[in-house]
Nucleic acid binder design. Sequence first.
RNA 1: GGGAAGUUUCCAGAGUGGCUAAAUGGGGCAGACUGUAAAUCUGUUGGCGACGCCUUCGGUGGUUCGAAUCCAUCACUUCCCA
Length: 375
Amino acid sequence: MNFELISVSANSRARAGVLTTGHGTIETAVFMPVGTAGTVKGVHTRDLKDDVKAQIILGNTYHLYLRPGMDVIEKAGGLHKFNGWDKPILTDSGGYQVFSLGDIRKLSELAAKFQSHIDGSYHQFTPEGVIDIQRTIGADIMMAFDECTPGDADYNYAKKSMELTHRWLDRCFEQFNKTEPKYGYQQSIFPIVQGSTYPDLRRLAVAQVKTFDADGYAIGGLSVGEKEDVMYEITEVVTADLPVHKPRYLMGVGTPENILESIDRGIDMFDCVMPSRNGRNGMLFTRDGKINIRNKKWENDHSPIDENGTSFVDSYSKAYLRHLVISNEMLGAQIATQHNLAFYLWLVKTARQKIIEGVFSSWKNEMINRLKHRL
RNA sequence: GGGAAGUUUCCAGAGUGGCUAAAUGGGGCAGACUGUAAAUCUGUUGGCGACGCCUUCGGUGGUUCGAAUCCAUCACUUCCCA
């Protein structure tokens, strides 16, 4: 994997780059649609590629491991073959599930033990096992197995949690180094910086993570309940110390505003369920602000969903989409998801362009003002 | 022609003397959603000069301190027998 910085903003840390993987190149800053179960819910790979213009999508270790299971994925020849997506894939390690499935798991030094949310069966993830699973999935970018520390963790818990993540990181790399890709292309592993909302812990974490010469570095444990200005502050602390010549991935972020602010602070890669989940739930993101398409005011608005939109679905009318969403028609969720993803991809692509043109900051400020609106 | 059951707030449907502006579901309206246990979840849904008041349970008239709940009568609906 190779990362080349094309341009860096003069008056901020914003960067434009090109990341090269075994499944092609990725122009950063990039937004990666989330496809937990091997599918970006409701969107065909064709539309994802040609219409949304996604460059890379996510899959999830925990979900794919439980269903369909590694046997099926391996027999398919990896996730790319299984779901028909021939561009890069990044898999999350299951660290977030350790966090979000909190009630049905137990952490120990050795492993995270958990109960399947599907059938209650008992399983455990070790750092080694998680690497093996991601080898089988065939992710271009695999994530280290971490504990995603909750946003309200006290200092002591955050420190212990971070240290566990670091010990797990050692094991992840050890396993990574003694195993081989299964499908003939290179795989990379990104460590994850934890340390919660404490700058000194975050600095320690960066230092620790940097001891591995990884292809890229992720920031985890943000947008998990802490205040937004704290998230920005921590992002700044972390990007200040990360290697300049490697991509930085801010996990799970965020709103369009969050993404622009984070690009400004030196982030290259993003993923978030927000455009897809909120889309399914009737919320649209546009460059002029947010729309709750279920609201009565759109009942007879026969204008396009988004006059400035880049997706073909944007020519459907608001009134029609409202009808679909309210009637619980599956096409409503599909259109809204596709629109939102296309918007997110447009947003980061435009940010990249503005960085290259050297006008990112002014554009960002203007954009954030528009995005705040509620239509 | 005879008999039976029923008529409740937008709909369906509980409630059979005071704790009932009235369960629950649907629908409506609004909100939430950040490495997806989410096509999910939450709030609200008679009116108002709102910690109180007013009007509601087919119509009318009664009984009672008090009625959606009991009685009489009228209207309508459904079912059964001719």
